[in-house]
Amino acid sequence: MTYPEALVELIDDFQSIDDKMERLEYVFDLASEVNELPVAQWTEETRIHGCQSEAHVLLEIEEGKVSLKSGADSKLVQGLMGILTIAMDNLDTEEAKKITPDFAVDMGILNSLSPSRSNGFRNMFDKIMNDLEEN
């Protein structure tokens, strides 16, 4: 599928990194990309289930565009949210709905994660898509 420009750039960035350690560290660096959801706003509705750490995401639609706020007690998880923020934040809702989780495969990040973290990433993506459908 055709990805949004920011996501294409991010996929290129990851694909240019051969070293597993550097790729993982890049995910950590992307933790700064999230729009922070303060801990005080973490609720059962924002919780991402099936994640080994405490992870939350709030999706809102503002003038037809996706607004993502998120937070986690793990920097790696927050980095994964940073990827989703780059991929989906500020996109038109219809455009966001077309995104599939295959982009993570194209990035090659799943091989750098443990199975539980890969599963957590998928749960994050699914929650965002479900929230998007319900909005």
């Binding site: 597993k20 993982l24 950590f28 080994q52 793990s74 790696l76 443990s114 973290r117």
Partner: peptide, 11 residues
């Protein structure tokens, strides 16, 4: 977070 440290050590 313990998971973060473990991932970075694993790498």
């Amino acid at each position: 977070h313990s998971e973060d440290l473990a991932h970075l050590l694993d790498a």
